[in-house]
Design a protein around this nucleic acid. Structure first.
Lengths: 216, 216
DNA sequence: TCAAAACATATTGTTGACAATCTACAATCG
DNA sequence: CGATTGTAGATTGTCAACAATATGTTTTGA
């Protein structure tokens, strides 16, 4: 910083402060998805209000989002609790639906992903490899989510992204609680590596095939 | 009502008064789905507040639900508008996803629907026939929605029902604006009649076939 | 004793006032 | 002029007080 010209390039940090309801929503959602709030756990507005030092307004708005997202259910004038999903619905509804989205997104990805996107996805795969080496299931699961999140977010409208998010969130919560049934973590890493390779190659046919065989 | 015994059977109407946010949510949603609010239309909280004579609190909560549902999009401190969906997403995402749900629901329906449900569905089909005879597209479309709504609601968890609702709502809005592309309204009625018949018969194989051929 | 009514408490639902932010436009300064 | 800075109005975000409702407990009365 001795050269005065360096000041030309100086930039202030972008203000990432979001609305309180966004903050509250993210906090509660993460707690549910990471299993800190288990199915059946009760959410009390005033309790959250005190803990987060936020009035009930934003908290109620966040709860409405979570409810529509299907992570939480409210009983009027009584209580709101974290939902529990049936095995059957997870397998026969959530999984196929999620695959629809990822198939659609992966095919679009061929023409919409930029170099920046690929760099990001590459770095995720590197991290996945490391997580796999350390048998770090939590981290691998988190990276898996981020990988698909990036692709879907870039290839789909905000409205559709919300739906994908609500589906993948529920699946994520489920698998973290139950534990992966994968034969090996290494397989997960490999599958993602192949997927990304296929998108780069632009072969939409093989993308479809790949997604249909690796049902997870 | 001359016979005193008739009073034995008297029942007061169930209090359907729901929360204000529910009311506001339903009103806005219907306006969007029925095309009274077109894509791009702006939703102003104070304006709605005055029109409905409700404070902004419940209105904001309703908007959060609609946003998560994907019917509306909010730009912080700026505005919230009715969303517009791309043709591509409707065809390649919404339609297949909706079919997933209805396939799952129809198969479960075989073992969960009661006589009361069938009576309700029968009556819908009767009304559909009438709407078809009168070329009443709006009404037919409405009945179509109610038909599937009943089946899905009975066969799926509340959390999943919300997702189905958000998908079918968007499709409904879309088709009402664009107009049906069906060759004939009568076909729609017939397809629903057959579907119901198949559920009654309990033949899950043919249910799957039927849904896969009638893609609409 | 026991069923029904009254009450107490906890919690969610609603409201109106105030704060923060965005946009567009006017004022300022080179 | 042209670009930047200030200002005004509209709109959304947040808050704290109050209202309504559900549930469990106590009281009442036959």
């Amino acid at each position: 910083m001795t050269n005065p010209n360096d000041f030309e390039n100086f930039q202030f940090k972008k203000n990432d402060t979001v609305s309180l309801r966004q903050f509250v929503y993210q906090e509660i959602r993460e707690a549910i998805i990471k299993g800190h709030l288990e199915p059946g756990a009760r959410l009390r507005e005033v309790e959250i209000s005190k803990q987060m030092n936020v009035s009930r307004g934003p908290i109620r708005e966040a709860i409405r989002i979570l409810e529509q997202e299907g992570l939480v259910i409210s009983h009027p004038y009584r209580e709101t609790v974290v939902v529990d999903l049936s095995e059957e619905e997870v397998i026969h509804l959530l999984v196929p639906t999620r695959r629809n989205f990822e198939l659609f997104a992966a095919q679009k990805a061929v023409s919409v992903l930029t170099g920046e996107d690929f760099a990001y996805l590459d770095s995720i795969i590197l991290n996945m490899q490391e997580a796999s080496n350390h048998d770090d299931l939590d981290r691998l699961s988190d990276l898996d989510l981020k990988f698909h999140e990036r692709i879907v977010e870039r290839c789909v409208s905000p409205a559709m992204f919300r739906i994908w998010n609500s589906i993948s969130g529920k699946l994520h919560a489920r698998f973290l609680i139950q534990g992966y049934s994968h034969s090996s973590l290494q397989t997960v890493v490999e599958e993602h590596r192949e997927m990304l390779q296929l998108i780069r190659s632009g072969d939409k046919e093989r993308i479809e095939q790949h997604l249909k065989t690796h049902i997870k």
